[in-house]
């Protein structure tokens, strides 16, 4: 579903991703962990071209997104993204946040978009907040709306960029719960997170990144209990 080959990304002279190779299969939940500055968020942002790629290829469902002829807007409709800072549109209600892109991009009618929005809000448990503005929501609620907003485009892949890092501890659970549900339904997911419990419980595979490389990858149980690389061991000893 996603093929990443020799991916490189530099900001000026600072090379953040040095040589990333990865394959993400359909219905797979891949969790990316690693110390801050290891390039894991940049890696995720390269997968929908929020960062311009310096070298290498990323192929999503057979489409090379680094090809200049590729319509990136079209690719992005298939790849949903959830941000650490939620990035809800503050001038729009919860429902309008969800309806905007389906109406503008998928050309749904107001009624279609609204009924889909209601379904999604029910799914994340926030139907009573449909007409609220984002500022009146808690962090956990905001993030659940952000997930519903991304799902409204019916993406084939969902990217999560540290979705619980900006939340108060007591709200982490409600967001992870929604993500677990998604994983159970078979959504292909790439999740950058510090939630080792989530990685262990939900992840099919864990990638450990450090210094712009994928240092080690394995099934969660193997990687957490029997890490092969020194750097993986020292990182896990600090976070577990």
């Amino acid at each position: 579903m996603i093929h990443v080959k020799n991916l490189k990304k530099s900001f000026g002279t600072n090379e953040v991703l040095k040589d990333i190779n990865a394959v993400i299969k359909p219905r797979e939940v891949v969790v990316v962990i690693g110390p801050s500055g290891s390039g894991k968020s940049t890696f995720l942002r390269c997968l929908n071209l929020l960062e311009t790629i310096t070298g290498g290829n990323v192929t999503i469902e057979g489409t090379d997104i680094t090809d200049k002829k590729t319509d990136i807007n079209k690719v992005r409709t298939e790849v949903g993204m959830v941000f650490q800072q939620f990035n809800l549109f503050p001038h729009k209600t919860v429902m309008e946040n969800i309806m905007l892109a389906p109406m503008r991009v998928r050309k749904l009618s107001n009624e279609e978009a609204r009924s889909k929005g209601l379904d999604l809000l029910r799914k994340v448990g926030l139907e009573e907040k449909a007409s609220a503005y984002p500022e009146s929501l808690s962090g956990g609620q905001k993030q659940r709306v952000a997930i519903a907003r991304a799902l409204a485009m019916e993406p084939k892949i969902m990217l999560f960029d540290e979705p619980t890092s900006a939340l108060d501890p007591e709200m982490v659970g409600e967001v992870l719960e929604v993500m677990k549900q998604l994983a159970k339904e078979g959504m292909t997911m790439v999740v950058v997170t510090h939630e080792m419990g989530f990685a262990r419980e939900v992840g099919d595979r864990v990638l450990f990144m450090d210094g712009g490389y994928i240092v080690e990858e394995n099934e969660p149980k193997e990687l957490f209990e029997n890490p092969q690389q020194e750097r993986t061991k020292s990182f896990l000893s600090k976070v577990l």
């Binding site: 929020l50 992005r76 409709t77 905007l100 892109a101 503008r104 991304a150 485009m153």
Partner: peptide, 21 residues
């Protein structure tokens, strides 16, 4: 905040739509 443009673009809206809406 540049996250607003990123969120809008990540939903598949183009630059002009993101600016306008």
């Amino acid at each position: 905040d540049k996250g607003q443009m990123e969120a809008s673009r990540s939903l598949g809206m183009n630059h002009v739509q993101s600016m306008k809406d």
